[in-house]
Simulated assay, not measured.
Amino acid sequence: MPVITRPPALEPPALTLLRPPALHLRSVPPELPFRPAVPTKATAKKVSFGPQATPRNALPDPIAHARALVLALLEVLSGRRPVQQLRAHLTEDAYHRLAGRLQRARAGVRSTPYRPRNRTRIHLGRTLLCEPADGVAEVTVLADVGTRTRAVAIRLEGLDGRWRCPVLTIL
């Protein structure tokens, strides 16, 4: 059903010549229909262009990711896989520490804890998971490398929607 309204006036209202308009010496700001929010420390959103933390519910299974990462790490240490394949799964600091360690080991300056041959069998055993905070997983994987058993402890942090490893330790 159409609504009939009065059209707006096309001309401004006529000014009366008998009384001039009052001049205000002080300007008064117009009243706003709302009160603008003033950002505080609690409500101010900081913009960051670095890696963004990801909550646990938005990340894949940490055990499966950790086992795949440990297997790839052991293959890198045995010489079956290039270290560059781990770059996407490690943070920059962890990657540079691992690459430097491998480079020193190959130069003979410092040896790695073990150097299995290319034909050495790698079998992953028991996996233990601890989640100390949201988006953080600490995983320990027992691995049989040839005749020796090693424990590999890694910390996974959810960054930019995927797991990244900032710390790894081979015992």
Rank of each mutant, 00 (worst) to 15 (best):
R164L: 15
V3W: 04
A133I: 07
A151V: 00
Q85D: 15
P12M: 11
P113T: 07
P82M: 02
E138W: 00
P13G: 07
L142Y: 10
P12R: 14
R104H: 11
P60D: 06
N118F: 06
T112Q: 02
P29A: 15
C165N: 09
L73E: 08
G125K: 07
M1Q: 10
S111F: 01
L73K: 05
G158V: 00
P113A: 00
V38M: 03
P2S: 11
R164A: 12
A14I: 06
T16Y: 02
P7W: 03
Q52P: 00
Q52L: 13
K46V: 15
V141I: 06
R104D: 15
R104V: 00
P12H: 06
L74C: 15
G108K: 10
A105M: 05
N118G: 07
R81H: 00
P113N: 00
P8H: 03
T147P: 11
L10A: 14
H65A: 07
R164Y: 11
A133T: 02
R56D: 14
R97L: 15
A64E: 15
G161E: 05
A143L: 11
L168A: 03
R104K: 14
R26M: 11
I122A: 05
I154W: 06
D160Q: 06
L86T: 13
T140N: 07
L159G: 01
R117A: 11
P13D: 10
D61K: 04
P12N: 10
L18V: 02
Q52Y: 00
P12Q: 14
H24E: 05
T120W: 03
A14Q: 12
R19Q: 03
A151S: 09
L10T: 13
P62S: 10
P55H: 08
T54H: 03
R56H: 09
N118Y: 15
L159S: 01
L32P: 09
V167W: 04
T43F: 12
R6P: 00
A37H: 08
A37W: 09
A22W: 09
L73P: 05
Q84T: 15
T169D: 13
R6S: 04
V47K: 06
A42N: 02
P13C: 08
A99P: 07
T40S: 13
R150M: 14
Q52C: 01
A53C: 03
E31V: 11
R106M: 11
A64D: 08
F34K: 03
G79W: 08
V167H: 12
